[in-house]
């Protein structure tokens, strides 16, 4: 009798332990918003500042920027189309080679930020090295894409994304990003500050100068109720 009770208890515990991973996966994170600031200084000395709030919803696959500076406007990215809306009117529409599902917002919500979403891309992990307190992985593009894409190098510190560097197919450093601080909300971690240094390539193929950009985020909210009209911002016809 006692033995059967012990076996029954052990069985229940085993079932509970086996269900734990499923329970954690079941916490579906589908939307997030954060206040952002993007400061840029290019190689010619020109500067820009963009402030606002970004909304991302994985269900609607929409990335919405409510910009309040330099001017009040709304940017909506759906698929690879960028829409600019001012005072409720669509004033601009252009192709943008960016899918909302290939952004840091989606990577953060799907817990793929650690490797910048590369695990689920056309890149494969190559050499892994430990240097000082960084673990550095070189990601190599699919063989068929090597003429168009270069390697991506990712650095992780304390098991978190620390830096990422993008190379051209000729192995020239195109840009690097450094991630500082992590905002935590709703079970996800999101970078507080991203410093990006871009090394522009001229039409003649030579690299000179650099542009620097600092993006900061605060007031991160995950799976927030309400504001559906912004998360699923309806793009006006004109």
């Amino acid at each position: 009798m006692k033995l059967s009770r012990i076996l029954s208890g052990a069985g229940s515990l085993l079932i509970f332990l086996m269900m734990l991973p499923n329970l954690s996966i079941g916490q579906h994170r589908f939307r997030m918003k954060a206040d952002f600031s993007i400061k840029e200084k290019n190689q010619n000395g020109q500067m820009s500042l963009t402030l606002g709030t970004v909304y991302y919803d994985r269900t609607h696959k929409k990335l919405v920027y409510q910009v309040r500076f330099p001017e009040k406007e709304t940017w909506v990215i759906t698929d690879t189309i960028f829409h600019k809306i001012v005072n409720g009117k669509l004033v601009g529409k252009q192709f943008i080679p960016m899918l909302p599902s290939s952004t840091i917002f989606d990577y953060a919500l799907s817990n793929n930020l650690g490797n910048f979403g590369l695990e689920k891309s056309f890149y494969k992990a190559g050499e892994v090295k430990k240097d000082a307190d960084q673990v550095i992985t070189t990601w190599i593009p699919d063989e068929r894409l090597k003429k168009a894409m270069g390697n991506v190098v990712i650095s992780r510190k304390n098991n978190q994304l620390y830096g990422i560097a993008f190379y051209s197919p000729k192995n020239e450093l195109l840009k690097k990003q450094l991630f500082k601080g992590m905002l935590k909300s709703g079970g996800i971690a999101f970078p507080e500050e991203i410093t990006e240094i871009i090394y522009p390539v001229s039409a003649t193929g030579t690299q000179s100068g650099k542009s620097t950009k600092i993006s900061t985020f605060k007031n991160l909210k995950v799976n927030e109720n309400g504001e559906n009209e912004i998360y699923n911002f309806p793009v006006p016809a004109k």
Binding site: M47, I96, P97, L99, S101, S102, I104, F166
Partner: peptide, 24 residues
């Protein structure tokens, strides 16, 4: 001074997602 409203949205948002990974 030297602050512009560039209108280069792709440049501004490049930090948020990497275009080569977002090939349509």
């Amino acid at each position: 001074a030297n602050v512009v409203n560039s209108g280069d949205v792709l440049g501004t948002l490049s930090t948020m997602g990497e275009p080569p990974l977002g090939i349509p």
